[in-house]
Design a protein around this nucleic acid. Sequence first.
DNA 1: CGATCTGTTGACACTGCTCAATAGGAGTGG
DNA 2: CCACTCCTATTGAGCAGTGTCAACAGATCG
Lengths: 263, 263
Amino acid sequence: MFDSRTESDGVYDVQSVSVTFARGEDPTPAGQVSCDSRARCTSCMMRNICMAASLEAGEMARLDTVVQGWRSVKQGERLYRAGDPFRSLYAIRAGSFKTVVSPERGKETISGFYMAGDSIGMDGVCQESHNCDAIALEDSVVCVIPFHLLEALCREIKPLQRQLHKMFSAEIVRESRQMTLLSNMSAEQRVAAFLLNVSARYRERGYSATSFVLRMTREDIGSFLGVTLETVSRTLSKFQQEGLLTVQGKSIELINLDALDAR
Amino acid sequence: MFDSRTESDGVYDVQSVSVTFARGEDPTPAGQVSCDSRARCTSCMMRNICMAASLEAGEMARLDTVVQGWRSVKQGERLYRAGDPFRSLYAIRAGSFKTVVSPERGKETISGFYMAGDSIGMDGVCQESHNCDAIALEDSVVCVIPFHLLEALCREIKPLQRQLHKMFSAEIVRESRQMTLLSNMSAEQRVAAFLLNVSARYRERGYSATSFVLRMTREDIGSFLGVTLETVSRTLSKFQQEGLLTVQGKSIELINLDALDAR
DNA sequence: CGATCTGTTGACACTGCTCAATAGGAGTGG
DNA sequence: CCACTCCTATTGAGCAGTGTCAACAGATCG
C-alpha cells in the first residue's frame, strides 16, 4: 500500500487516510494501490499548478492511475525524513510543509516552504533516499506518486515528461534565487522578499495577496532567510512602524507592496 | 561543420575544435545536426561521471546520436546568457564554467562552479529560457545535447531517463547544501568547505586532491560563498599561517584536510 | 489554568563589510 | 624584450549590521 516504512511512532496511520477519502470520494480499500476510475486530478483544485498542469483530460486520467492514493499528515508530523528510502513524489493537495536539511555538523536549516499545488520529494531521486525532512506546518494531505510508475508514464506521455522536467528545473531555479538572496541581501531585504514571495504564491492560488496567515514560526523564517528569529521579529516590527504592513503574531496584512519591493 | 576527427590518443585537443565555431555563436543553426557515427561518449574520459554514466555500450552509442556536436568556449566567453532561449543541455568535456545569476536589482551572484564531467543548462527547462549566464573559467569544450532529442531518447531508454532525473535531483541537492552553507556557516567555515568541495571533485576526476589551481578569482569565490573578496583573501592567509594549506595566488596546496574539515 | 512554546524588545559584542593603500601578475603594444 | 596598463590579490583600520544573551509578554494547548 503506502510507503511501507513506519512513522516514528511505529505505526502508519491508515485511519487518517481513510478519513480523507470520506470527503466525497470512495475510500480505497486498504492494502491495494488505490486507483478508482473516478478522476481525482480532474476535480482537484490544484490541477492547474501541480503535476497535472497542461495535460489533456485523457492524460490526466492516466496520471490518476499512477497516483497511489492520498496521505494525511498532521501538523508537526513528518511526511518523510532525511535518509528514508526514496520511492514517491508527493503533490500537496491541502496544507503546507517545510523541508529541513540537517548537516552532519551545524544547525539544521529550512530549505523551503511548500503549499498546496507544490510537489516535494524530488531531492530524493539522486541518492535514492530523501535528503531532508518534510514537516507539515498544518494538517495536510498529499497525493502519493510512486516515482517508478511516474517515470514509466513519462515514457509514454510526452507532455507529462516535459511537465516533470519543468518541475525539477523550477526547483533548481527557486533554489538559485534563494542562494542569491542569502548571498547579497540585507536582513530587511530578505524579510521583504520573503513576504512578497508568500504573497505572490497566495495570489496564484486565488487567495488574498495582502492578507494572510504565516504558518511557520519566526525561527523557521529566520532559518530559511539565514538570519536569527530576533532579526525577523525586529524587522517585521520596523516595517509595521513604517506603515508597510501590520503584523499580529502570525497574521500579516501587507499595506504597501511597492515599498516592500523597493527594499 | 564539426570536427569529425576521432580521439586516437584519448587526449582531447582543444585547439582543433576551437576553430570549428566562431566565438560565442550558437553552433546549432536549425536543421544541421552533426553527429558523426564514430562513438564519442564511449571514448570520452568523462563518460563515467556525466550523462552517459551507467549506460551500456549500445545505449551510450544511442546517446551519441543525440549529441549534436561539440562547442568550444574561450576563457571569459559565455556559453549562454540569462534569457537566451533554452534548447540544449551542455556536458562539459574539458575546462570549467561559472554560472552567474543577475537579479533585476542587486549584485550578480555566482550560483555554481562546474568542471569537466558536469552538465549545465538544466535551469533553462522550466521557463524555456536560461536563468543564468554560463561563463568559461578557462578555454573549454562542451557536448551540445538538444533537449527535445534527449527527452525523446529518455522515453525509450529507461536507464538514460533515470540518469537524467538523477542529474536534475543532484543539482537540487547541491543547491540545498549551498543554501545551508550560506545560512549558517562562518566565513572561515565557508572557505574551508569550498576548498574541500573542490578538492573532492578533483579527486573524483583522478587529479590531486591536495594540490590544484583555482580557476576563479577571489571575487568569484566570495560571491559564491556570500562573503567579500577581502574576507576570502584574509581567510586563506589565515589558514596558511595556521599551516592548514599554502596559497600562492591561484595555486593551492592543502596540508591538513582534517583540520579544514573540523572548521 | 498552569506549563510550555512563541514572539517582542533591549543592551552589547563581534564578525565581516567598506574604504583605502599597495603590491603582484598577466596581457598588450611598441 | 621592456614598459605600461589593467586586473587581481593582500593587508590594515574603522565601522555597522546582526548575532547573542536576557528579560518578559503573549499564545496555545492539554
